[in-house]
Design a protein around this nucleic acid. Structure first.
Length: 225
DNA sequence: CTCCCGATAT
DNA sequence: ATATCAGGAG
């Protein structure tokens, strides 16, 4: 069986993206937010917990501390009490308060439209910075590789076992997908990862790209015999 | 690499 | 019971 070359990989990716767009559109952001600041905070809080859990506490959090000024002067204890159900509440509370203080002291009170400056904010790494660049500023500088994108990239055969870090997976995806698609990949794949390509038991038989996916084809073989 | 850490689905 | 959930810092 001949190995898939880069041109074929890009064509397969383009067809997958076409179907993703049909199915999910541009991919709605599933984290509730009002502006770049609340989006950034929500994404920081969403680490290793569900977006539904974040959305449950964010009305309370943002009613109380919805601006950098208010968050910067909040008490850690009060923030912790609000975000406790999310887990990692100690570190997250410290991070979002320090984040707000940094926005005030370093960036004139505004979340910066800059991938490198964003990563200077406490609690903001490459993944969160990518999400903010795409969602808040429509200025994609990369593809946010979260747990869903990481898993799906491997399932689709766009990343190999050697690509064992989000950075390596992102590098592979950036070569395969044109920049025009970078805006939508993360959100579309997050929805796709929840509905079909779930971590525990992927629903390959029902998946709308199973004919374009190595893992999906294997699953189809089994139902055929 | 380990630690941070509660809620939920299976 | 345990794997997993929009990761990042030390």
């Amino acid at each position: 069986m001949p190995r898939e070359n880069m041109t074929q990989k890009r064509e397969r990716a383009a067809e997958i993206e076409r179907r993703m767009y049909e199915y999910y559109g541009e991919g709605e952001c599933s984290l509730d937010h009002m502006d770049p600041f609340t989006l950034t905070v929500a994404v920081v809080l969403s680490a290793q917990c569900t977006d539904a859990a974040v959305n449950k506490i964010s009305p309370t959090l943002f009613a109380r501390f919805g601006t950098p000024e208010k968050m910067a002067h909040a008490s850690i204890e009060e923030i912790e009490a609000i975000i406790h159900p999310l887990g990692f509440y100690h570190a997250k509370a410290r991070n979002i308060k320090a984040l707000a203080q940094t926005v005030l002291s370093e960036f004139g009170g505004e979340i910066p439209n800059d991938i490198d400056l964003l990563q200077k904010l406490p609690g903001v790494g490459r993944k969160t910075a990518n999400v903010v660049m795409c969602q808040a500023f429509r200025n994609p500088q990369g593809i946010a590789v979260d747990t869903h994108v990481f898993r799906i990239a491997h399932q689709l055969g766009f990343a190999t076992r050697n690509d064992d870090s989000p950075a390596k997976v992102e590098a592979k995806l950036l070569k395969i997908y044109p920049q025009r698609d970078w805006l939508f990949i993360n959100h579309q794949w997050v929805h796709f990862g929840r509905e079909f390509c779930v971590a525990r038991r992927p629903k390959c038989a029902e998946c709308f790209v199973n004919d374009l996916c190595p893992a999906g084809k294997k699953a189809l073989m089994r139902t055929a015999d």
